[in-house]
Nucleic acid binder design. Structure first.
Lengths: 315, 315
DNA sequence: TCATGTTGATAGTAATTTGTGATGCAAAAA
DNA sequence: TTTTTGCATCACAAATTACTATCAACATGA
């Protein structure tokens, strides 16, 4: 049994297709077929049920694949250990970022990071929380930045900062006169939210539910970007909530419509998250310290009330 | 990098000698040398410092060896998973037992076990607790039976039974008249103990220390077997303590000299212990259930006071 | 129904890797 | 100094892995 064979098994298990799996492994299909057969023969069991289309894992195949993931992960970490020892920080690193964090946080640290660690090739992807969790688990991402806590057994979190929400109230709205507003002033029916799947939206839904349990079957507009929401709010269609960092980029005229919450401010916890396997920890730590450096001073908030992305709205 | 190469690295790390390691791996020395060189070249580091005699691990070599152990263990477990799935319980199994448990417990379950699991080849070794812990960790034992708790991070314990201690009081001794005795009646200075290294002895030392803190620099006889202790006690040299199962084999005349402790009886906890790696769990579980079967009825004690083998006497 | 495409298995061969015995060489031991 | 010990190196053999070409099974759809 070789590590290569296990990698082939994992590739087939993932793609449910020998030909495609072979491509991903940079070998021809017969090579991969033979090696799979060889390990099946050595263990004297069938890992894949080739009679089904697409190909299925057998019961024992499931267990073997899960164990093979362990082994391959642990094996990968050897190179990691060596690089860490050499003090080398480099190589490809795939980072996922949720859409509501990407445009504000990325410009703050990217320049610093690539200057400080020129040998790291960062591959950044905008993904929603569910996609991120999936890709962290199957190894297609090395780490990600998302709202936490996730309370996922297989994922570790390092909190980067707390980002409060700020209300955007159009001029003709009742609450516009208030200097500061309270969570109780919010009404889910008039808040414009991002489209489903964005965890930020889930967070806001929780916020409102905790105050007034309104019925869910109301008229709602769902948009993909905050700019749309701001324009809709200006058109008199309601209010919206913006994460603090987003408010910094607004026009002066729009900033007048922002209202801070009274303390404890509702806020989201933003963390660097990565799989428990802890591969490429040097780069993860480099990211953490770089972001911590730029964030320090930019967003320091205490006495905030964390809105968890966890509890999804009732379906 | 292959699993075989890692096994070669582990063999050299263990034996500090290429030639010997090669033998243990059933290959010639050049083969092993070349494979070690290949992995060192691939990782572009030196794992071994060949200038020292005997061969030493480099700093990074240490880390690589520890990670290699993980990988090889996880790899071994694949075969384990397959066998478990097939319901096959067999193969070699190396079991360590401490000397004070071996002669009483082994005859109770060995026959049952080999009848029930004829395909398991049990290799049983009598070892003291320290040796057992060492060999469990380096993989030379699959499991062991010893007094617990050990509180060792890398070792798991399944309690098999609690075995009380019984005092052996010669006729002319003051306490001989009592029907039952108490821990307070014990005096370390007159108790005959097993030679150092036997955890049973450590247990008794703790027992006495907890009652009367006598000075350690007293006349003491240390023997390797309970029979010697009994004879010495009969010669008027003191008293001794015996684990319950040992007392069952005494002559009737000697049984008259036994005195039970009042409850809670001082007792030792006897457990099946094995490394966290959890290899060969089917066999470990087969052992557990077999021993549980014979022990049930033979030794059922409650309200006992466990004497831990952990705290060693002050040096 | 019959071409057609997809997908995995097989065969034969080439390339690579792993292993062997013989030998070299340096350092420690006698 | 001589001998022994212990790892490295070399040339070659065996085994393994990979490739190209081809086949067989099955599904698709005109």
């Amino acid at each position: 049994m070789t590590i290569t064979q296990l990698q082939y098994v994992l590739a087939v298990a993932e793609h449910k297709n020998f030909t495609l799996a072979a491509e991903k492994c940079f070998v021809t299909q017969p090579t991969l077929s033979m090696q799979i057969q060889k390990i099946e023969e050595e263990l004297n069991i069938l890992i894949f049920d080739r009679s089904k289309k697409p190909i299925q894992l057998t019961d024992i195949g499931q267990k073997i694949v899960s164990q093979a993931k362990n082994i391959v992960n642990e094996a990968d970490r050897i190179k990691d250990i060596v690089e860490q020892q050499k003090g080398f920080i480099g190589g490809e690193f795939r980072l996922g970022i949720i859409p509501t964090i990407m445009p504000t946080l990325l410009p703050m640290f990217l320049n610093n990071f690539i200057k400080k660690y020129p040998k790291v090739k960062l591959l950044i992807e905008e993904l929603n929380t569910e996609e991120i969790i999936l890709k962290l688990k199957n190894g297609h991402l090395d780490a990600a930045i998302a709202a936490t806590p996730l309370e996922d057994e297989k994922i570790k979190e390092i909190v980067l900062y707390f980002e409060p929400f700020v209300a955007y109230i159009p001029e003709h709205h009742a609450s516009f006169q208030k200097e500061e507003i309270e969570v109780a002033d919010l009404n889910l029916n008039e808040i414009l939210l991002l489209q489903d799947g964005h965890c930020f939206r889930d967070g806001i839904l929780n916020l409102c539910k905790s105050v007034s349990d309104v019925d869910q079957n109301n008229f709602q507009i769902q948009s993909g970007s905050f700019e749309t929401l701001i324009k809709l709010a200006d058109e008199g269609l309601g209010t919206t909530l913006l994460p603090y960092l987003h408010t910094l980029d607004l026009k002066e005229s729009d900033k007048l419509k922002l209202r801070n919450f009274k303390e404890p401010k509702p806020a989201r916890e933003v963390s660097l998250i990565y799989p428990k396997s802890e591969l490429k920890m040097q780069i993860i730590d480099a990211l953490r310290s770089t972001i911590a450096g730029v964030v320090k001073g930019a967003i320091v908030f205490q006495n905030v009330q964390i809105i968890s992305p966890l509890q999804k709205k009732a379906q």
